[in-house]
């Protein structure tokens, strides 16, 4: 259609920028509510199996490195703050500050993934893996558990309040690590997607797409990022700090 339709960022099917902004924001909230329901299934499974097999979850939490978890919590909380600051800068039309805050957010997210990498690779190496691979370093069950695995297990059992005695390895640790990996794994995927979104925001910011009138994508990204943060806020204590 040839007729002029308002600013360049206004999509053809909207009447006003306000309508476009409000639609986008409502759509994002609807999307976030599905995200919550998506994770909630896992939290229910967590609740049920922790009730059924408290000793596994108790010992399991000692097999996780709470210090790394705590660092990641701090990093992610910090990144939520910088994401919020990025929105504020975008609202003010301050392109430079928006870019810096987005970059800091990106670095925090990357830091989170690096820590996550160390956690995962340690578990891979020791063999604290889900299901049938529990006790199988590198998903290879042919050699059986290693000495390192035995030592780590023994320490965790010793530190745990709910155990059936020294060297009594709870069977359902396989389920605990199943839940641990699927929860943190899905959360990690969300962090990676968030990092991709930040790069996209940076690119659009660099090509002057955002202004005090139009900053919707940054705003929506930040909403998403806060949710990713929020999920982690629940995951950290439920997995690392329960005993």
């Amino acid at each position: 259609m040839g007729h002029s339709h308002g600013p360049a960022y206004l999509a053809h099917h909207f009447e006003t920028p306000k309508q476009q902004f409000e639609s986008a924001k409502l759509g994002m909230w609807a999307f976030l509510s599905q995200e919550i329901l998506f994770f909630s299934g896992l939290f229910v499974a967590y609740g049920i199996f922790r009730t059924w097999y408290p000793e596994s979850f108790s010992v399991g939490s000692h097999l996780l490195n709470w210090k790394m978890g705590a660092i990641n919590t701090a990093v992610l909380l910090g990144s939520s703050f910088t994401a919020a600051m990025a929105v504020q800068s975008a609202q003010k039309g301050d392109k430079g500050k928006t870019a810096s805050y987005l970059i800091v957010t990106f670095l925090c997210a990357a830091g989170f993934m690096v820590v996550k990498y160390f956690e995962y690779s340690h578990k891979w190496h020791v063999g604290t893996l889900p299901g049938q691979y529990f006790g199988c370093p590198g998903f290879d069950c042919s050699n059986g558990p290693t000495l390192e695995f035995a030592e780590e297990m023994s320490t965790a059992i010793g530190n745990s309040y709910e155990n059936f005695g020294a060297n009594m390895v709870p069977y359902h640790l396989r389920t605990f690590f199943g839940i641990y990996f699927i929860m943190t794994g899905l959360h990690g995927v969300h962090v990676l997607i968030g990092m991709g979104l930040i790069l996209w925001m940076l690119k659009r910011n660099a090509s002057n797409e955002f202004s005090a009138e139009f900053y919707t994508p940054v705003d929506l990204f930040a909403l998403y990022w806060h949710l990713v943060d929020l999920v982690w806020i629940f995951l950290f204590p439920l997995l690392y700090l329960i005993d």
Partner: peptide, 25 residues
Amino acid sequence: QVLATPVLAITVLLLFMEKTMSVGI
């Protein structure tokens, strides 16, 4: 659609894990 479907998604994901790794859920 928005509030129920994600629960199915997580269910089949868990089923997938159960089938490939026998996690015991």
